[in-house]
């Protein structure tokens, strides 16, 4: 399955090992083909992604690492169907995202993918429960059923008692837990987390990590997570390094010892 065409292969990828999960039977859920993205700002063209070929498997927990500006967020935008690449392809569940109409994209975002943002992005004027049920409404679930499911999800993240709180009345960790509950509201196959604990202190961050871990283990959700936090990395199945818009390497966690400092790929140079 792992067969990038030689023409597309960059030098870096040719030399560096691309690990595959231990369980070789796993299905591919996200596949990218020579994914490129450049931003033009006036005369300056920034190449944020320069040919990314990866395959991510159903049910795996993969951490994406890389220095600031390396293109992690850009990669997430492409993979999450939030933006279209300059060239190259993204397949989600074997569906070519570029071929989708606006409505189909909305459908995809609504049911296939859950998003967790560094800044939580809860709707400020809605309560925790209402926030969680918004995506359900877009999926046609409303009324009592939505309420029951929303409360169950809030229970999952330990916020059942606070369902009526507005974001203003919650701590950062509580907001992020609400955001996780929201991201799970339509049982997505994929959770995209862009630095989910970037704004949180260590303790609160750990709670979030545990929740993500549980979702991955108990519900089999594929979790793709950009982070610098070694505790989160130690939970991952695989770790992917991005540098200058290219995949530097992908390793199974079992192949690296996760210790602060040593894991940072860019420090190994």
């Amino acid at each position: 399955m792992n067969k990038p065409t030689p023409a597309n292969q960059t030098q870096a990828q040719a030399h560096l090992p691309v690990a595959r999960p231990d369980d070789k039977e796993r299905a591919v859920i996200i596949r990218t083909r020579n994914l490129r993205k450049s931003y033009r700002m006036g005369q300056v063209v920034t190449e944020a992604l320069r040919g990314i070929d990866v395959e991510l498997y159903r049910g795996e927990f993969i951490c994406v690492m890389g220095p600031s500006g390396s293109g992690k967020s850009t990669f997430f935008n492409m993979v999450g169907g939030l933006d279209s690449p300059t060239s190259g392809r993204v397949f989600i569940d074997e569906v070519d995202v570029a071929q989708l109409s606006a409505v189909e994209l909305a459908f995809l975002r609504c049911r296939k993918i859950g998003y967790i943002f560094q800044t939580y992005n809860l709707v400020q004027y809605l309560t925790a429960l209402e926030n969680v049920t918004v995506p359900m409404a877009f999926a046609g679930v409303s009324g009592d059923e939505a309420r029951q499911r929303g409360l169950a999800l809030l229970d999952l993240v330990g916020l059942k008692e606070r369902w009526f709180h507005k974001p203003i009345e919650m701590s950062g960790g509580q907001q992020q837990r609400t955001a996780i509950a929201r991201s799970m509201s339509n049982n997505p196959a994929i959770l995209l987390c862009d630095e989910p604990t970037g704004n949180l202190d260590l303790r609160t961050g750990s709670e979030i990590h545990q929740i993500l871990k549980r979702l991955n283990k108990e519900r089999g959700v594929t979790i793709i997570c950009a982070t610098h936090d070694h505790r989160l990395i130690s939970m991952a199945d695989r770790i992917m390094w991005i540098r200058d818009g290219q995949v530097e390497r992908i390793v199974n966690r079992s192949e690296v010892t996760v210790e602060t400092g040593s894991i940072e790929g860019q420090e190994n140079e």
Partner: peptide, 16 residues
């Protein structure tokens, strides 16, 4: 901006 974009991430269509 952020609220609208988030809504779109959650499945809102342009029409909505």
């Amino acid at each position: 901006f952020r609220e609208i974009a988030t809504m779109k991430c959650l499945g809102a269509t342009d029409g909505f």
